[in-house]
């Protein structure tokens, strides 16, 4: 289209990959090297003995760090900072956790169902004292299903960009502008998939509702935790976590 030249699409694609590379830690090669470095039986037991509140604080801390990287990813994405500030906030508030969940598949080992957490790979049992087995299981299932797609780093980068730039989020002020950016991202993603003979991927992606459900489940579990531990949240949870979820 006249508003979307081939050059523009090319630049956008390079930009998505660079933004992803610069803001995703650890790097893919390092994750690959460490994927069998799992917690010992004793270390798992030590995590399981931690009080519920401490485990929630730790998980909120790690999640917040991941979200800060997602904010940096968004800021480097061509077009994001040209949106009005209301819409930047709306997109991040609604999408940051979803992007973290997509990014999590990079740090997930589907062969033993473990995820990198505080330096080593951990199975669901390590998170027992959180008291939300169902949520943890669903998050692991989601990571497992993304890993089955054998996504390349470029594909993860585009998925994250497309999850974030969603013109259907409520309270957007310049919906058309977001939709145009989203459209350009989709064109660039399709071009990448055609070049790499991966067109079939689009039909195999998990439905958007699945990510949304995981995020609502997280907020529900947080509310249940707050009922059990009133007053715990202001004390030790990161302010950004409270701002996004409480």
């Amino acid at each position: 289209s006249p508003t979307c030249s081939g050059m523009e699409i090319e630049l956008l694609a390079q930009d998505v990959l660079r933004s992803h590379r610069e803001t995703s830690q650890p790097r893919a090669e390092e994750l690959q090297q460490r994927r069998w470095d799992t917690f010992s039986r004793e270390e798992v037991c030590a995590y399981q003995r931690k009080p519920m509140q401490e485990m929630w604080e730790r998980c909120a801390g790690r999640l917040t760090e991941a979200i800060q990287h997602v904010v940096e990813f968004a800021k480097r994405l061509r077009g994001f900072m040209e949106l009005c500030q209301n819409d930047q906030i709306v997109l991040l508030k609604a999408g940051a956790m979803e992007v973290v969940l997509v990014r999590m598949c990079r740090a997930f080992n589907p062969d033993n169902r473990t995820v990198l957490f505080e330096g080593k790979y951990a199975g669901t049992e390590l998170f027992r004292s959180l008291g939300c087995h169902e949520l943890v299981g669903s998050i692991f299932d989601f990571a497992q299903s993304l890993c089955a797609l054998r996504l390349s780093e470029s594909e993860v980068a585009f998925l994250c960009a497309i999850v974030l730039i969603n013109a259907n989020r409520p309270w957007l002020q310049e919906q058309a502008k977001v939709a145009r950016l989203r459209g350009r991202l989709e064109v660039a993603f399709r071009l990448l998939l055609r070049r790499t003979h991966r067109e079939g991927l689009l039909a195999r992606l998990p439905p958007a509702g699945r990510l949304r459900a995981l995020c609502s489940q997280h907020v529900e579990q947080l509310q249940a935790f707050r009922r059990l531990h009133p007053g715990a949240l202001p004390a030790a949870f990161p302010p950004l976590y409270r701002e996004l979820f409480a």
Partner: peptide, 14 residues
């Protein structure tokens, strides 16, 4: 509202 997100977005290199 969203004070921290605002701050992170405004910082050149947060």
């Amino acid at each position: 509202k969203h004070r921290i997100l605002h701050k992170l977005l405004q910082n050149g290199n947060s």
